[in-house]
Design a protein around this nucleic acid. Sequence first.
DNA 1: TCTTGTTTTGCATAGCTATGCAATCTGCAT
DNA 2: ATGCAGATTGCATAGCTATGCAAAACAAGA
Lengths: 346, 346
Amino acid sequence: MSLDKHGKAAIRAVTSTDVARMAGVSQSAVSRAFSPDASISARTKQKVLAAAASLGYRPNRIPAIMLSGRSYMVGVVIGGLENPFYATALERLAVALRESGLQVLLVHVDDALTLDSALDQLLSYRIDAVVTSLAIGSKSVARALSQLRIPVVCFNSSLVGPWISTVNSNNHGAGLVAARLMARRGVTHPVWLAGPVRNTASRARGEGFCHGLREAGMPVADLTRLQGDDTYDSGYKAVIDLWKRNIRPDGIFSSNDMMACGVIDALRERMGLLCPRDAVIVGYDNIPQAAWRSFDLTSFDQHTEQMVTRAMDLLDEALGAKDTPLSRTHVVDAQLIERGSTACSE
Amino acid sequence: MSLDKHGKAAIRAVTSTDVARMAGVSQSAVSRAFSPDASISARTKQKVLAAAASLGYRPNRIPAIMLSGRSYMVGVVIGGLENPFYATALERLAVALRESGLQVLLVHVDDALTLDSALDQLLSYRIDAVVTSLAIGSKSVARALSQLRIPVVCFNSSLVGPWISTVNSNNHGAGLVAARLMARRGVTHPVWLAGPVRNTASRARGEGFCHGLREAGMPVADLTRLQGDDTYDSGYKAVIDLWKRNIRPDGIFSSNDMMACGVIDALRERMGLLCPRDAVIVGYDNIPQAAWRSFDLTSFDQHTEQMVTRAMDLLDEALGAKDTPLSRTHVVDAQLIERGSTACSE
DNA sequence: TCTTGTTTTGCATAGCTATGCAATCTGCAT
DNA sequence: ATGCAGATTGCATAGCTATGCAAAACAAGA
């Protein structure tokens, strides 16, 4: 980085003392003028605000952080924004945090290595808590997060540890529902398209699905499971692969919508097949693209707003229980949104 | 918000003095042990690091902010993350900033009102600069940003003002290229699908396009311009609208890819038309969906990595010129990515 | 006017680290 | 042993605001 360190040369920022001098009051008065419930007369407050406005003074929260030990900043650790689901989740989360008077210190993370150094940096800014939507759920990540000794709230993660709370969508239950839907549609050769192995939410969806298949008396063989990596391309390739291996499913449950879109495109462009006529497709996340006419994809909506609200509750609770490790879990039901990809074809 | 203010009850965080006591050295020594180029013997450093590790000490940057007046935090103001283009731009920006040793203080903004209060909050955290990808370009926003008296770097915005620098893609030039491409494909009834009126980047694309059409001797009438709002739905509706009004374009240049996808879907599903056979379509942004088989959309790639690099350059420069307002502009050429939607149909 | 109770104001300080400066130490040459 | 340069260390302080406490101002009733 090419940033100089000669802070000295900087024009000193306007301070509360400057304002005080101009308004003819004490520095405390200025501070109180900007504190909502402080004891100050209307006249003084007005004088102060006038002086502040003319000098362009803005209250400085940095010293307050030192005094209170609370920064009102929350570290938000994300990844995979190319998936619209995570992008809008982040958007909603940012709004909710700001409405709670908390600032978002954002970190994008590729791998566990980045995570460690990122957490170090965040901590040196004395963040109050961490919120993350990272789907990876390794033990080492859990350990790293627990060691921070500040509240951590995870989305769709199976991380467990002393300071870690979680908001999950009902992945297993959704898998069940998907299986039952396929049974109703007369599917005889179902396939499960899994996300990355370390994505525990994806795994839960798959387990629920298999569970539901067995319940309905449908075959659950090795070839029922297909490995993807949550991208459109992996969904596309998965279909080509199936056909190469002479497997012809008539129902595919995909761990996320991006892969499902890839599946639909591969079926249509490469195999000349249409859903739901030739195969029934179900996705997960209900991203905007699922509703696009080209896909018209049945999917599970995770109710991000609700999950974010729950996350904020957990966060408030954990922040309230100062320095006491808390581990709560909330489960939000995912809602099946039926579209053309599972319509009755008769 | 339901956060308590009794910071007093908190367990005091581990401080450099604690570490110093344990290591049997002065507090200064601890500080130096964590400063890369400080004068400290290897032995002392090791003692300090050992003590720090055993106590779980993390250097605290907050006091340093007070001393140096620099927080090494940059306010990132965003909106419209449902567009994958902005989502990945944010991702890349976050990575680049962190690599420069800067933290990202994220704010999501819906309207100008939110912006004002958001900027106030950011400033109270003493951010060093602002980076924004907001497409809106009103005078009042420019004024608000200029008043911060800290460097501002904008993406694809036409904001001008004392502290404001900009990185733009060559919107006008891309419009020209799109027009010429259509001319080569024998388009006779071109249409321009515009983004929100206040989006100046979109306007520039449209102007370039019209310019190019005239240059090629193609008709530029009122009905050449169609109003959208950058969403898939608005693209979809635009086509239906055209057909209702009995306008039958054979070439559509869309201000962004999301709308273009809507256009393609509407043509296919509602009109039974295919591109490029019945109409040539060109989008902008080159979002991942443009490459999806259902769309196979010709588009302009904005080279986000390059734009982000340029933005970082401008930022470094502006931060280097401490307290001196700077206004630079960089233009990065958008690259035409030709796909099926403009393939030669003969 | 005096008392009493309430509101408002100012003083003084805590909070933690980085850094200039002076003091001390180390190693080496004389 | 002495002197000296360079390396290392510690001392003391700045940076800005919020807040407890005491002082002051004010209001109102007697």
